[in-house]
Simulated scan of single mutants.
Amino acid sequence: MASGGRAARLAPVVDMAESAEKAAAQRLGHFQGQVNLANSKLGDLENFRAEYQSQWVDRGSQGVSGQWLRSYQYFLNQLETAVSQQRQSLVWHENNLNKARETWQQAYARVEGLRKLVQRYADEARQLEDKREQKLMDELSQRLQRRDTL
């Protein structure tokens, strides 16, 4: 019965570990969403920059004023800055995602380890109980045989 008690005593620990693993999995999902969003924004900015640069070819073939060229260059520089900042943002979110993945993997491994331990304790308790039952059955069988032989 002591082994069964060990398994039962571990139940709150397993529950806490499962809660921590679930929270870590939710955090992992959140950061995956942030990476997806940052990646999408980066793609949008890069597409917009490519379209804006193609305007240079279209307008340039028609001739442009110095004012238009200065405005174009200024806005293109701002776009380059925005792309660069978005790349940094993506890297930051990817780092968070990697940390969250590590945390979740550790939490998952802890839960799995605890579950295996509880199962082992439960198996040991069951084996002990089976042995006790077998011993009782053997004793009862021996008593009955002695009674029958008397």
Score class of each variant (00 low, 15 high):
M1N: 06
A2S: 14
A7M: 02
R9V: 13
A11H: 06
V14C: 03
A17G: 04
E18V: 04
E21N: 06
A24Q: 01
A25R: 10
Q26G: 11
L28Q: 03
G29P: 01
F31R: 01
F31K: 01
G33L: 00
N36A: 09
L37K: 13
L42W: 00
G43T: 04
D44R: 01
N47L: 03
N47I: 02
N47E: 15
W56C: 08
V57R: 10
D58M: 09
S61R: 12
G63E: 01
S65C: 00
G66N: 11
G66Q: 13
L69S: 06
Q73P: 12
Q73W: 08
N77M: 05
N77C: 02
L79C: 07
T81S: 07
T81C: 07
A82H: 06
V83D: 01
V83L: 04
Q85R: 12
Q86Y: 09
S89R: 10
L90C: 04
L90F: 09
H93R: 15
H93N: 15
N96P: 11
L97P: 00
K99M: 15
T103R: 05
T103V: 09
Q106P: 00
A109R: 03
A109H: 05
R110G: 04
V111C: 02
G113Y: 13
L114H: 03
K116Q: 15
K116D: 14
A125R: 03
R126D: 15
L128D: 15
L128G: 11
D130Q: 06
R132P: 00
M137K: 14
L140Q: 12
L140M: 11
Q142S: 13
R143G: 08
R143D: 09
R147V: 13
T149F: 13
L150F: 09
